[in-house]
Write a protein that binds this DNA or RNA. Structure first.
Lengths: 254, 254
DNA sequence: TTTCCGATAATTACTCCGACATATTACAGG
DNA sequence: CCTGTAATATGTCGGAGTAATTATCGGAAA
């Protein structure tokens, strides 16, 4: 992000244009404001305990109506990022109150320079949850699930992970595993985390060759699930998560 | 138009009073609306695909201004429950888009008669995550963490789980374990799920004696963490989750 | 005639504005 | 130290106008 431009008096204007510029089709104004403020909070630009300027002042600074600004604040409030009270103003809540697993919050966290420690935390969580999901999938998958996984695997082989189609197939594969668990809570959790993490690795690896061919590892996971081998599926998926971790780690280090 | 005209004959009024009645101190009007609509969606009163009445109509039906209604809708949108588009209206999104791990969404889900399958899913997730958390805690805890756990354990012994103080100590104990993991993602995840689940069991067990004394199991977890025994901590915590599951299951069945 | 495409119209959410009500904090006086 | 009062920022309201999306209708091409 090119935030380091210290032009003094035009900054308000830049911020305002920035807010309105992001406003594409399907993206409302209040959504753009929420996006902007959310990223500002997640990036540490506003820190826990800080109190934002008053509604009228901030809305005017952003060059939007008070209604739009307020609706944006409601979004942030719903995600546990801020809290508004009469006379006290709107303040950023402590990090423990943030809904860090909310897909949008994750997107904001990964929009700028994601906090290394947080990425490690997420991978640790993945390393806990995804093997367990594979274990459940091995116990509960039906023929339809296996077919979807098999097709996704074939598509991955065909396109490789360097293409959009290949990455889409990768997502399909993992989603099929999740669906096979039949656990909704597991599905939403893993889906949002995986999406957020892959989101960064994906476009950071543009100039980077993958550490090694990930297809065989995916095949191992599939075989174990197809064979109804829970422990094998969990182990194989553990390897896969570890692989993704190394990939991301090297991408962020370099 | 004066707001205090309680003309009687409409059922709309009843709904409106219902919405306004929940409005306690610290609870804004739009928050109450969001609460009401959120529970209605989670309870299946509005099903995925349904489109809500238009802003003007619905706001008038609830006897609130469009601003308050819209802000409530923004909250629901932020949690992935609904989606609004011009000309198309506001429709309830498919369940897979809901942020089921959002604390408020969980609260709404457990406000009425919680879906049995969903409760099972959550416990399955707990059974995956919490033992892993205990394992990490056994590896990373410091003296301060152990002290907090010890104190909480003593308080649990003193008050028993039948009292508010005792349950607070129970929460403190589990929170101390989470804190000891040092993983923020793990913390928010487990904290919200645990809170929601305990929320039901807590006030359903008013007339029910606990299946068995849970203190010794807690002690086992603590001892393993204090001893730096990851596998032992994970196993002991697994027992604890299983115990909670049985408790909840019998509470919901009876 | 059928099918497809583009212009048009209607509906709905979206945005803005200005005013008032309410809650919470801070201060002054007892 | 406590209590009542005033200041202030959020909360709520109603209405007007804008923008975007969908549905409809008409015409042209197959």
């Amino acid at each position: 992000m090119t935030r380091s431009a210290p032009s003094s008096d035009k900054e308000d204007l830049a911020a305002a244009e920035g807010a309105r510029a992001v406003r594409g089709p399907g993206r409302r104004l209040h959504g753009a404001i929420a996006h902007k403020l959310g990223m500002a909070i997640l990036s540490g630009q506003y820190q826990p305990g800080d109190t934002l300027s008053g509604e009228v002042a901030f809305a005017e600074e952003l060059d939007v109506s008070r209604s739009a600004y307020r609706e944006a604040i409601q979004v942030l409030t719903a995600k546990g990022l801020v809290e508004s009270r009469p006379k006290a103003g709107t303040r950023v809540l402590p990090r423990t109150r943030w809904n860090l697993l909310d897909p949008e919050v994750l997107a904001w966290a990964f929009a700028g320079e994601p906090d290394i420690q947080f990425v490690r935390d997420l991978f640790e969580l993945r390393a806990i949850v995804e093997p367990a999901a594979a274990r459940l999938a091995a116990q509960r998958r039906d023929k339809e699930d296996l077919k979807v996984m098999k097709d996704a695997l074939a598509a991955m082989r065909r396109h490789t992970l360097a293409t959009d189609a290949g990455r889409a197939a990768d997502r399909d594969f993992h989603n099929a595993i999740l669906k096979a668990t039949g656990n909704d809570a597991l599905i939403v959790l893993t889906a949002s985390i995986g999406a957020a993490v892959n989101w960064t690795t994906q476009y950071k690896q543009r100039a980077r060759a993958l550490p090694r061919n990930p297809i065989p590892d995916h095949v191992r996971v599939f075989d174990a699930i197809a064979a109804g081998d829970p422990q094998g599926a969990a182990d194989a998926m553990g390897v896969l998560v570890q692989l993704a971790l190394e990939d991301t780690a090297s991408a962020m280090a370099g």
